[in-house]
């Protein structure tokens, strides 16, 4: 009798071992009756924007030619400029400003040197908007009365000022 009971008890214990395994699987496979979806999203917050300026400046050849008639002076052994026989060849010259910046700028030009070169009022050069903004500053050099040269001479400097528009 004892042997039979022992065998039955052993079989019962072996049977419960598999129940434990099944119990684990039952927990993993359990599906709740109600589900909640929690969205996970990211948002973009606009930070500071840094204005960057890119300006192109192109200028023509600001060379003015002075042609003269000279007569050899056998006393001084030098060439004398014949009075009233020289003349300047002067044409209007341009400076072009192109603006690829995200903001407009103003462009002006000022000349320091011999004679005068008047570029007029400052020009507003628009910001990039499908294409670059452009402006041209033009001037015609005027020598001082009676001013002549007898060799290549640097006349002066043109300063182009590019200012941000407030």
């Amino acid at each position: 009798m004892k042997k039979v009971l022992s065998i039955v008890l052993a079989i019962a214990m072996i049977a419960t071992m598999s129940a434990v395994a099944f119990a684990g699987e039952a927990v993993i496979n359990a599906v709740p009756d109600e589900t909640t979806e929690i969205p996970v999203t990211a948002t973009y917050a606009q930070g500071d924007r840094i204005d960057t300026y890119k300006v192109t400046i192109s200028w023509e050849d600001f060379t003015y030619s002075f042609g003269s008639t000279e007569t050899w002076n056998p006393t001084t052994h030098n060439w004398d400029l014949t009075a009233g026989a020289g003349e300047w060849t002067i044409e209007e010259k341009d400076i072009t400003i192109t603006n690829d910046s995200n903001k407009a700028v103003t462009a002006s030009a000022a000349y320091e040197g011999e004679g005068t070169l008047d570029f007029g009022e400052a020009a507003t050069v628009a910001a990039w908007n499908e294409t670059a903004g452009t402006a041209t500053l033009s001037a015609t050099w005027a020598p001082a009365e009676g001013y002549t040269i007898q060799e290549a001479t640097d006349l002066g400097t043109i300063t182009v000022t590019i200012a941000a528009v407030a």
């Binding site: 300026y53 300006v55 192109t56 050849d61």
Partner: peptide, 12 residues
């Protein structure tokens, strides 16, 4: 143009 010049400047 010959005798002229052309530059770009980029800055903040």
């Amino acid at each position: 143009e010959q005798g002229g010049g052309s530059v770009s400047l980029q800055y903040t």
